[in-house]
Design a binder for these strands. Structure first.
Lengths: 124, 124
DNA sequence: TTACATGCTATTCAATTCATAGCATTTTAT
DNA sequence: ATAAAATGCTATGAATTGAATAGCATGTAA
């Protein structure tokens, strides 16, 4: 019997089951678990800004990521339905783009944060 | 000579210096580095919803976090100016509340994500 | 002065990530 | 057809990070 491609993998943090950092499986905690892994947000961000990307292109664009970790993150992001494969390499799914859209304001705000830290460090 | 309290620590990812996952030090990458550590977002989230919290209260509310990690995350969040100490324990700063506010939509959206995954898993 | 709460640190062990090499398969060039 | 290059990884070992648990130093209250 063949595996069906769209079943949820038990191997990535997903809502409804206990995840690292929460026994409740609350969606936000599952999301925090998934995104709170090194490079998870960075990969999604980088991919969305360079779609499609092959594995090696992503690797280069992420500068320092190791192929083992990239492969693992891609697997998790695919299991979570944020990333899939398409023509010319990896691409984001509709869900992945929604998530990215949630991160964009964070990207803008991070500049304010940088400014605030900077001003603070200049204090006499 | 005494250390001044508000100087940036070199020991946490901050904009303008290379961080894990990016040599550029782009603010968003520094933020991703900081938040992409186990429990970082969870601690901020939990604290914001239970202000103020003592160390032990936070520990309980986070359910599974170990004191060493909580202490480390608190140190980073404080260095990043997201958390500070106040009457009755740890509290968020104005910056920390801004960041939390950026995460709130993510929390709402995570429910849609959960629903989408769920529907997908019910497919024939 | 004993008891308890608080904010950690110490220690040991497990899991994760880094850095690098390299392999199997497909595509491209000659 | 063959060789070279690109692609998508896997393997390995070292370094870093996190989990689990114990316990200590300080402060407060009884």
């Amino acid at each position: 019997m063949k595996k069906i491609a769209y079943v949820k993998s038990a191997d990535f943090p997903h809502p409804g089951t206990p995840v690292r950092g929460s026994r409740s499986g609350a969606p936000i905690m599952a999301l925090f678990d998934l995104l709170g892994r090194r490079w998870a947000m960075g990969v999604l961000w980088t991919l969305r800004e360079n779609e499609p990307s092959t594995f090696r292109q992503l690797q280069e664009r992420c500068e320092t990521i190791s192929p083992a970790v990239l492969n693992k993150r891609l697997g998790e992001l695919r299991a979570a339905q944020f990333v899939t494969r398409g023509e010319g390499g990896y691409i984001t799914t509709a869900l992945g783009r929604e998530l990215y859209d949630q991160l964009v304001p964070l990207g803008l705000w991070s500049k304010d944060w940088a400014k605030a830290l900077d001003e603070m460090s200049e204090m006499p």
